[in-house]
Design a protein around this nucleic acid. Structure first.
Lengths: 203, 203
DNA sequence: TAGTAAAATGAACACTGTTTAGTATTTTTG
DNA sequence: CAAAAATACTAAACAGTGTTCATTTTACTA
């Protein structure tokens, strides 16, 4: 009775094929600039076929959303080797920024785009997101155990740090730093991150 | 020879009419969900007419972008009455948040949306934006003259503060606070803003 | 009033996401 | 193996998008 299983595997393979093509196109052009017809063409199927495997374009988005967070967590994993929690937190910030500018389209679906958020937070594609968030909170808590951030609620502080990082990254990504000269922008990001480090270290 | 002038005035009036309708629709539904045909219907002209007054949909965006910043600066003007610069800075943050949640669609074009940013920063529609940014930098500088933020570059700190505010507001606006319970979200924003205040006050 | 310049438009083009009815292809059953 | 049932796939259509252009309507001038 290995037939039903094969069928299920075939289905999963097709989903994967679609997702892979969507992924590639998406990273190149961004979600809004990739059409169902583009994806269909890439996998050499008709557009209608895609709707047999995904409810709509948003469901493809959700899946990529999950992938993005998985990649993010992978990208973050290098910080584990750092023993000192505060240094690890700083490195986390650095990696966050690096990820943002190395995979801007991913960052977009993860934290900026409107589209996918009308979903339930209990979905599979959100688990990796929660992992990332948990890691930050746990790290901040660990810092507290080492004497940092006294008399601060670690969850609130975690959100505040995330907000600051996201603020800098998304303003840069969405071209809201035009007030600064072209050459100044990268420097400004660097300097403000440095200042954030300094503020956190004296807290 | 008041004819050419009247013609020019008529043109300007039509532009204004289009913009007003676009504005209304836009505030209700958001930029992406308003079509040229929607605007045309509202002003009871054909879609093609709009292209006699605006180069494309983006040019309408630019104009609304300028309007949004004007509204923003107006909204901010109440802080002027506060003498103490630090208290004024805090009030500025509060107003920033209020504006965000009272006019989310405006906030969107001002700071989040992709669309309009492929323009030159010297355009009219950017002046109000620069005013806003300047006000923040000047206020931070003024705080320094009153003993706050010693040994800090005021421009860098301004950007850092802006980033933090924008981070919190845009994460909330784009529904990235699902990790927190429904009821917790507003509280979390409040608490992290409070923490930011506290951090700034001891700097 | 005829002629010209300006303003407005209907219709089209090339797209978009999505649905449906119908056709191939496989698998199951008699 | 042949017929029936189930599955996989697709062409075509629908309703919408931004945008362009030839054509018509309107307004002003000589």
């Amino acid at each position: 009775m290995g037939l039903k299983e094969r069928k299920a595997r075939d289905r999963e393979e097709m989903r994967e094929t679609i997702l892979q093509s969507a992924h590639q196109l998406f990273v190149d052009k961004g979600f809004d600039d990739v059409s169902i017809r583009n994806i269909a063409e890439a996998i050499e199927y008709s557009p209608a076929t895609i709707y047999l495997y995904f409810k709509d374009k948003n469901e493809i988005f959700y899946a990529l959303h999950g992938e993005a967070f998985k990649k993010f967590n992978e990208f973050m994993s290098v910080i584990a080797e750092i023993k000192d929690p505060f240094k690890r937190l700083i490195k986390m910030g650095e990696r966050y920024m690096e990820f943002t500018f190395q995979f801007p389209k991913y960052y977009d679906i993860m934290f900026i785009m409107q589209a996918p958020m009308d979903c339930d937070k209990n979905s599979e594609d959100w688990k990796e997101g929660e992992v990332a968030h948990c890691q930050l909170e746990n790290l901040v808590k660990e810092c507290q155990q080492h004497g940092y951030f006294k008399n601060k609620d670690y969850r609130t502080l975690s959100f505040l740090i995330w907000s600051t990082m996201h603020g800098m990254c998304s303003l840069a990504l969405r071209d809201r730093m035009k007030l600064y000269e072209e050459e100044e922008r990268a420097k400004m990001l660097e300097k403000s991150f440095k200042m954030l480090k300094q503020i956190l270290s004296t807290m």
